[in-house]
């Protein structure tokens, strides 16, 4: 592969800043974000789109970045976990996870925070079924999800969460 395929230059608007990288066209967006761009908050859990640890927002939609070829991200607007807080000011979802015990080992947390924020952008006041459905693509092995559901409800009650795309 390395001998026959040329690297290409891609550029993305990552957390509000244009970033470029020379990568193989089929390199995983996950590896580009974590490797070339050194944004390691996005995690790899399974590499096959099952666990959601690598979730980020691409052009406003939540994607599993392990399944996105780098070439497809050229020109895209990307939001990762690093862009969710404003400086030291946590987002409502992050504060709720911290208060309610939504994070234990923390490895699913970045993807879960992104998924929760995306859910609240779609449904500002989700019911139990919507929360479960909205987070079903993100696996957590520590919490049994109960405290994550509570965190989403808390974030929603605190009402400070803006669309994550607006940050």
């Amino acid at each position: 592969m390395s001998e026959t395929v040329e690297k290409i230059e891609i550029a993305c608007l990552v957390n509000g800043e244009w970033r470029s990288a020379r990568v193989y066209p089929l390199a995983r967006l996950l590896d580009v974000i974590r490797g070339e761009m050194r944004l390691t908050g996005t995690k790899e859990g399974c590499g096959e789109g099952e666990c959601g640890a690598c979730a980020l927002l691409m052009n406003g939609a939540i994607v599993n970045s392990c399944l996105v070829p780098a070439a497809e991200a050229d020109g895209a607007e990307i939001h990762t976990i690093e862009g969710v807080a404003s400086g030291d000011q946590l987002s409502a979802v992050q504060s709720a996870f911290l208060e309610c015990g939504g994070a234990q080992c923390g490895i699913c947390t970045p993807g879960m925070v992104i998924a929760a924020a995306a859910l609240l952008a779609r449904h500002p006041h989700p019911g139990d079924a919507e929360i479960r459905e909205g987070l079903a693509g993100n696996l957590c092995r520590c919490t049994g999800y109960q405290k994550i559901f509570t965190s989403v409800v808390r974030a929603c009650e605190s009402g400070r969460e803006k669309s994550p795309g607006n940050r």
Partner: peptide, 18 residues
């Protein structure tokens, strides 16, 4: 509050692959 909670919810916590 969980001691290392802030690092975890912001994605700043460093795991071995990071």
């Amino acid at each position: 509050e969980r001691k290392e909670g802030r690092e975890k919810v912001t994605g700043r916590a460093r795991y071995v692959d990071d």
